[in-house]
């Protein structure tokens, strides 16, 4: 019970810090919008109006926004020596990891919610589909679980911000593939059973990465 309370306290701390500083979210959303713009010029997707390309562009934008936010979440702790405080506090490291993960996930979901209407207008898509919402949640979770763990590692290295995308992107490839495929099917008006294998893939990746994170985090967070 205290474990859940600790986790939620840490998540709430991260979210209130973000609410007061408003550092990550505006930057992340603007960065994601820029990526959508860059892709629409590079691929000329708005001419073709293909939902399959649109799903890929959206996840590319979310991916880079995620890298930015994981880096920020851990870098902020380093700058103010907050991580030392967290490690000294009588909470388990697993709770620190889960709390950070929840806060990052919540931020990314808020970011996605801001992005989606703009994105829907740009690509003329109907985004109000329960399957798409589920894909979003599963995909972002599968991305955040290893992202938080690897950001904790890369932030203790000399080449901090540079290192995280190099570590994270090859590892999360299955999540990205599953999320793009499922989104593509749902945005094109496909049925649940069509997307089922991809949703299964996403759910399995989520479980595996979460389990790995929970088991390994003690090795990564240290004073």
């Amino acid at each position: 019970m205290t474990f859940i309370k600790d986790t939620l306290t840490i998540a709430a701390k991260d979210l209130s810090a973000e609410w007061r500083g408003r550092e990550m979210l505006p930057a992340g959303v603007i960065f994601a919008l820029l990526i959508i713009l860059v892709f629409s010029f590079a691929l000329e997707t708005q001419v073709a109006l293909r939902p399959d390309a649109a799903a890929g562009v959206f996840w590319a934008a979310l991916t880079f926004m995620g890298v930015l936010s994981f880096n920020r979440s851990l870098a902020a702790e380093r700058e103010a020596a907050g991580m030392d405080g967290l490690l000294l506090a009588p909470v388990s490291r697993t709770a620190i990891y889960l709390g950070k993960l929840l806060a990052s996930l919540a931020l990314l979901l808020v970011g996605a919610a801001v992005l989606l209407p703009i994105y829907a207008a740009l690509y003329n898509l109907n985004i109000f589909k329960p399957g798409f919402a589920l894909t979003l949640l599963l995909g972002l979770l599968g991305f955040t679980a290893p992202g938080t763990l690897l950001a904790a590692m890369s932030n203790q290295a000399r080449t901090r911000d540079l290192l995280l995308p190099l570590l994270l992107l090859p590892v999360t490839m299955p999540v990205l593939i599953g999320a793009v495929e499922a989104s593509r099917i749902f945005l094109a008006g496909g049925a649940w059973n069509e997307a089922a294998p991809w949703l299964t893939l996403l759910a399995c990746s989520d479980v595996i990465f979460m389990a790995a994170g929970l088991l390994i985090v003690d090795q990564v967070l240290e004073e």
Binding site: I177, L201, Q219, V220
Partner: peptide, 24 residues
């Protein structure tokens, strides 16, 4: 050594999943 070991383990978990997902 510790971080490299962690990454080697995460890597070996992710590779089969990548293979499966692209195989779909």
């Amino acid at each position: 050594a510790r971080f490299a070991a962690v990454y080697a383990i995460i890597g070996i978990i992710s590779v089969p999943a990548t293979f499966l997902s692209i195989r779909m």
